[in-house]
Design a protein around this nucleic acid. Structure first.
Lengths: 199, 199
DNA sequence: GCGTAGAACGAACGGTCGTTCTATTTTCTT
DNA sequence: AAGAAAATAGAACGACCGTTCGTTCTACGC
């Protein structure tokens, strides 16, 4: 790896942590440079613009997310077990990334939803991908007969992500220590309802 | 109403709309003053600090929320009907407030969750209140026998809010035109599951 | 009509923002 | 070892930030 690529990696690492706390907008080049003992201009030269820095932070986060959440979950056996694995990994991922300010995608979603530009476009693509991944795992469980075949996989993905968002809200804003427990119960109920034949 | 109270109301009105788009942090006193054709210092004098402005914007939003969502829903008959009313009102409320940038509480939750201070404290109190309201309506339905008595009302409130958060995410970030439809289906399924006796 | 309190103003403060230069140092290639 | 290329530094920029200050305007009780 180039010398430049190394420091760029270090920058993105720190930027990711920082952005989870203060947001992608709250991220400032001066503070980031100060924390890494670099000059503002030196750090800036790696990216050329703040938008590009934000895009690369999102890409960096996506790589981490794949490593920490998606790939290990794909090691679990297909079906509901894999769905459960992906859920459990998601809950832990801010701790393992580590992202002291919580999931950066949730954070960025609020920040970017009304701000057109490259960072928003990138985030939208990543979140669509994530929902598609959830739906794919659901379909895997359907093909195995563990979940009803007439379920709308995208609908289930929508609802699963809702549980995760509520969990995030309860943990990060309300500091509710039972948030994960609540989310787990909701997840189990949702999956259980998907097993039963329709009434 | 005092002259001062009138302009303060006008300020908060505009600030609320603006904050829904750019966030409570993105709100700047200069821009707000410019939009209202006031001087920065003249506007500032009404609040004394930006934190206080943010707190008052949150309070203003809470008043609106009560008028638009909670109070009309309380006019619906107790039970599941009222729960449905509160859900439908919630979906529409950014359009009716109007909040062109979507629900300000969801927006603020991400912004403030890692920033201690008066605005955060106020938001936490408001969101706890909101979840408590949801739980109270659920309990109303339980007392009427429309929902199972052994359900955990707070758990159901947690899951209901999750559906709303996922709806918000799909609408605002993904620009998904079927978000409300998805949310409605999730809501119906959740309530329906609450009607049935346990398996 | 006058005096006074509150409301709004305009200018300025020190700071920080993202960005743009130029110059210097470090790293890589040959 | 030499020369090209990449990486970093440092100073400066215009813009805007929240905030302060002293002044001016406006409305209303006497």
């Amino acid at each position: 790896m180039n010398r430049g690529a190394e420091t760029r990696e270090a920058i993105l690492d720190h930027a990711l942590r920082l952005a989870s706390e203060v947001g992608l907008e709250g991220l400032t080049i001066g503070q980031l440079a100060g924390a890494l003992e670099l000059s503002k201009s030196g750090l800036f030269a790696h990216f050329g613009s703040k938008d590009e820095l934000q895009v690369q932070v999102l890409n960096h986060a996506a790589r981490r997310f794949t490593e920490i959440v998606v790939r290990p979950a794909l090691a679990a056996p297909r079906g509901v077990a894999r769905l459960q694995a992906i859920f459990e990994r998601w809950v832990r991922w801010p701790r393992e990334a580590p992202l002291p300010g919580g999931c950066i995608f949730v954070q960025a979603a609020s920040e970017l939803d009304d701000r057109p530009g490259a960072p928003r476009d990138r985030l939208v693509a990543l979140q669509r991908e994530w929902l598609a991944t959830l739906a794919r795992v659901v379909r895997g469980a359907q093909e195995l007969g563990e979940l009803r075949g007439d379920l709308d996989a995208e609908q289930l993905a929508f609802e699963l992500y809702g549980i995760m968002l509520s969990c995030n809200h309860a943990m990060r804003l309300l500091r509710d220590r039972h948030a994960v427990e609540r989310a787990r119960r909701a997840f189990d109920r949702l999956v259980e309802a998907g097993r039963r034949p329709p009434a």
